[in-house]
Structure formats: structure tokens, C-alpha cells
């Protein structure tokens, strides 16, 4: 029972990670752009959400409607004004640029919101749970998992079936060849990053409802997203989802073994995958 509970909680935790991993799968997995500020953007959006919910009294759903477009706009600007200048075969410039952005963002948030942890009140939804045969399943985590699944499926279809998805895959495979086939890689990349960060608008609300948020929380969210994408396999949208589940389950089981072992168990699973199957679980070959 204890282990079944750990498994279920792990899958639910994985649902949260899958939301961060989705944007990461698109940017790092497909476009090969390293965005160190990914986690800080989640935190930024969560903090903006908390402030709006306190100041204006917006509920979670209206907040999503405000934060997702805002996040998409941030992503679009990030690609247009920063990342498009550093994309290329060498990933060091994008790593350094977004690293600098991450430091600036973290400390800016610290100045604005101080180091305190905060949380968002969702009118009871954050505490609601159902008892299934002795295992308590939170309503919010289930909602997060459903949202993550739908988003992953939707993004996967977009990548495989739409004009935009084909253009993005083409530009990621060979930017110059895509350009001479009529694609404007910069515009396609700007839209892709708008999607990747736009999803974080939703994740930010869920994050604030589910846990406490402080300006220094970004790097941890970033590392989980990276781990999930690499465990799952680069270039695969569902890979990031599967990787998130593996990571969530590893952490939940580790936590049941010893509370100090939870996060470490996730890292150890990641390092094991890196050592034995660096191309990831979902990737071919």
C-alpha cells in the first residue's frame, strides 16, 4: 500500500514536472537552445500570479487567461531579442546569455518580492482530495496531470501535423536549408519559444496553488525540467512527459525510503540514465 501510494504520488508529482519539461522539450530537445532562465520564468509567473490574486482578487482561471498571454509575450521577446542572436552550432553562448538572465531575474524578484515564500489561495481546490481505497488523491494534482497530458498530446500533434510544426522541425534540423525552402527561422523560433514559455503561464498558476514559491526556487524547477527531458530523450515531446513521470516516481519512492533521499533519488536515476542510455528512454537507437 505504501509503495502503491508512492507510485501514485510520484505520477502526480511527475504531472507538475511535465509542465516545465514540455517547454524544455521544445526548446532544448528540438531547438537545442539551452535556457537556464526556464525555472526562473516559472517562478516569475507564479509570483506575478500570486500578486494579482491578492491585489485584484483574480481566481485561478482568470489568472491563467492573463498569465498565459503574458508568458507567451515574454517568450517571444526572449527569442527575438536574446536567443536569436546566440543560436548556432555552439550552445555555450545561449547557455551564458540565459545564465546571465537567470541571475538578473532571480535577484530582481528578490528585490521585488523579498525572500519570503508565498502561496496562492485557490478557493479550496488546493486542499480537496478523494479517498480511493485508503489512498488520498489530491484533486489539484490530478488536474495538473490531466492538463499536462492534454498539453503534451496537443504539442506533439502540433509538431507532427501542422505547418508550424514542420517548419520548426525543419529549422531545427538545418536552419539554412529551411530558410532556402521559404521558412523564416527567426519567426518560427520566436513563436516556438512563445509556446514554450506560454505553457509556463499555466504551470506558474499550478505551482503557486500546489506549493509555496520564493524567488530562489527557479534553479530547482530548471534542473527537474532538464532531467526529465534528458531521461525521456531529446527531440521527443512525449519523451519529456515520460521523463517527468520517471523523475516524479523516483522522487516519491525515494522520499518514502527516507525523507532526505527524495530529490537525491531523482538525481541518481538521472545520472544512471546518463551513464547507461545517454540518448534517453524514448529515443530510437
Amino acid at each position: 500500500m505504501k509503495w502503491l501510494d508512492a507510485l501514485i504520488q510520484g505520477v502526480l508529482l511527475g504531472g507538475m514536472y511535465a509542465q516545465y519539461a514540455l517547454g524544455m522539450a521544445l526548446m532544448f530537445g528540438v531547438m537545442r537552445i539551452v535556457n537556464i532562465a526556464h525555472g526562473d520564468l516559472v517562478v516569475l509567473l507564479a509570483l506575478i500570479g500570486i500578486t494579482l490574486s491578492v491585489a485584484v482578487g483574480l481566481g485561478p482561471l482568470p489568472l491563467v487567461l492573463v498569465l498565459v498571454p503574458l508568458a507567451a509575450l515574454i517568450g517571444w521577446g526572449l527569442q527575438k531579442f536574446v536567443l536569436n542572436k546566440v543560436v548556432g552550432a555552439d550552445s555555450l553562448p545561449s547557455l551564458i546569455a540565459t545564465f546571465g538572465l537567470s541571475i538578473a531575474l532571480q535577484n530582481l524578484m528578490l528585490e521585488i518580492w523579498s525572500a519570503d515564500t508565498r502561496s496562492m489561495s485557490g478557493g479550496g481546490i488546493e486542499a480537496a482530495s478523494v479517498n480511493v481505497g485508503g489512498i488520498y488523491i489530491g484533486l489539484l494534482p490530478v488536474l495538473i496531470l490531466i492538463a499536462a497530458t492534454l498539453l503534451t498530446g496537443g504539442l506533439d500533434l502540433t509538431m507532427r501535423r501542422t505547418r508550424f510544426g514542420r517548419a520548426l522541425r525543419a529549422a531545427a534540423a538545418d536552419t539554412e536549408a529551411a530558410a532556402m525552402t521559404g521558412v523564416n527561422p527567426r519567426v518560427v523560433y520566436a513563436y516556438a519559444t512563445a509556446i514554450a514559455v506560454g505553457i509556463l503561464g499555466l504551470s506558474g498558476v499550478f505551482f503557486a496553488l500546489r506549493a509555496t514559491v520564493s524567488p530562489a526556487d527557479g534553479p530547482a524547477q530548471l534542473i527537474y525540467a532538464f532531467e526529465a527531458v534528458i531521461i525521456g530523450g531529446m527531440g521527443s515531446i512525449w519523451g519529456g512527459f515520460v521523463g517527468s513521470m520517471v523523475l516524479g516516481i523516483a522522487q516519491a519512492i525515494g522520499f518514502r525510503i527516507d525523507p532526505g533521499f527524495g530529490t537525491l533519488a531523482g538525481h541518481l536515476v538521472f545520472l544512471t540514465v546518463l551513464a547507461t542510455r545517454p540518448q534517453g528512454l524514448m529515443s530510437k537507437g
Partner: peptide, 26 residues
């Protein structure tokens, strides 16, 4: 339009998806 040296196809994509990229942006 150009047929580049070394073909420069979009790796990881099917033949039809390679062609569709051109159709999409013709």
C-alpha cells in the same frame, strides 16, 4: 529556389514532411 550542395534534407523527418515544408512556404 535552390537544390543545395550535399542535399541538406531535414533529418528526422519523412520524405513527405520534407516536401510539405516547401509546399507550406511556396
Amino acid at each position: 529556389a535552390m537544390v543545395p550542395e550535399g542535399r541538406r534534407l531535414f533529418a528526422g523527418m519523412s520524405v513527405e514532411d520534407n516536401l510539405k515544408v516547401a509546399i507550406d512556404h511556396a
